[in-house]
């Protein structure tokens, strides 16, 4: 019997795979391990301890930045998901027309434009508005986060809608449901897993952002990632490892939930 072709039997495959895995996971494993280091070093092991977690959780700046991160992520992800849901409905529930591809591109703009460019552009744009209005609150960060979260919320929602038979909405209309009733009673309940998946993805993306936040934030508006960046500039202690570890755990939980929700069928 002839052996069927498998990439796993190609010479070098195992080596390359091993190198990739080590490069990906070793640094993270090391980071996590040193979060439990007794000694105040990220390279010399001094025994097991939870003291860095304790000190991080009592650090007022960490708490402040964490709360701000959550606040921004919650509001921005919600707004982005609402916008993305409307965009997904508008791009899948109408017959194809010229210019539709262009609209996809517009909606997905944040995936294509380098973050640094958006960051600089927003910095200049918002500084003008700050001068005119005198407002310097969290609104700028929320607006920026909402904008770059939209495509991440849009993708799972659109995928869900494209798998949803148009004839269901037609049947609802046939049975005397007004467009709003058809949306409320048929489209929305069936779309819900997609919306939830979009929301979670947007939340994680917002939570994780550094570049745009760094440019847009005013004084005293550090989020958790920008706080960590600032700390690292002054030298690393295992407290940063502890924060990173907690952050990692949170992301893993949310992304896992995302996979379960988006794979769920009707």
């Amino acid at each position: 019997m002839a052996k069927s072709f498998s990439i796993r039997h190609q010479p070098g495959f195992t080596t390359i795979a091993a190198v990739c895995f080590v490069a990906l996971y070793m640094p993270i494993i090391v980071l996590v391990v040193y979060a439990f280091n007794e000694a105040p070093s990220t390279s010399e092991w001094g025994g097991f301890s939870l003291k860095w977690f304790q000190s991080a959780s009592q650090n007022a700046q960490v708490i402040d930045a964490t709360l701000r991160s959550f606040q921004i992520a919650a509001i921005a992800a919600t707004l982005a998901t609402i916008a993305a849901t409307m965009a997904a409905l508008a791009t899948t529930r109408t017959p194809p027309y010229p210019g539709l591809t262009f609209k996809y591109a517009m909606i997905n703009q944040p995936l294509m434009v380098p973050e640094i460019v958006t960051g600089v552009a927003l910095l200049i744009f918002f500084s003008r508005i700050k001068i005119f209005t005198g407002y310097s609150g969290l609104g700028y960060l929320i607006a920026a986060h909402t904008a770059f979260c939209i495509p991440f919320a849009y993708l799972p929602i659109r995928a869900r809608l494209e798998n949803m038979d148009l004839s269901l909405e037609r049947a609802a209309a046939d049975l005397y449901a007004t467009p709003w009733q058809a949306f409320r009673r048929v489209t929305l309940p069936l779309l819900w897993p997609g919306i939830l998946a979009g929301l979670m993805l947007a939340f994680v993306i917002s939570l994780d952002d550094v570049v745009i936040t760094e440019f847009v934030k005013s004084g005293g508006q550090d989020t958790l990632p920008t706080y960590m960046l600032g700390q690292i500039r002054r030298g690393i202690t295992p407290e940063i490892n502890a924060i990173s570890t907690a952050f990692l755990l949170l992301s893993v939980v949310i992304v896992t939930l995302f996979f379960f929700v988006s794979r769920k069928r009707d």
Binding site: D165, S167, L168, R170, A171, A172, A173, D174, L175, Y176, A177, T178, P179, A182, V186, P189, L190, D266
Partner: peptide, 20 residues
């Protein structure tokens, strides 16, 4: 008239039953 204003109902080829 839009479909929801017509006293006419349809049995769809794919049935189009609401799965939820």
């Amino acid at each position: 008239l839009p479909p929801f204003k017509r006293p006419v109902n349809t049995v769809f080829q794919s049935y189009a039953l609401f799965p939820h």
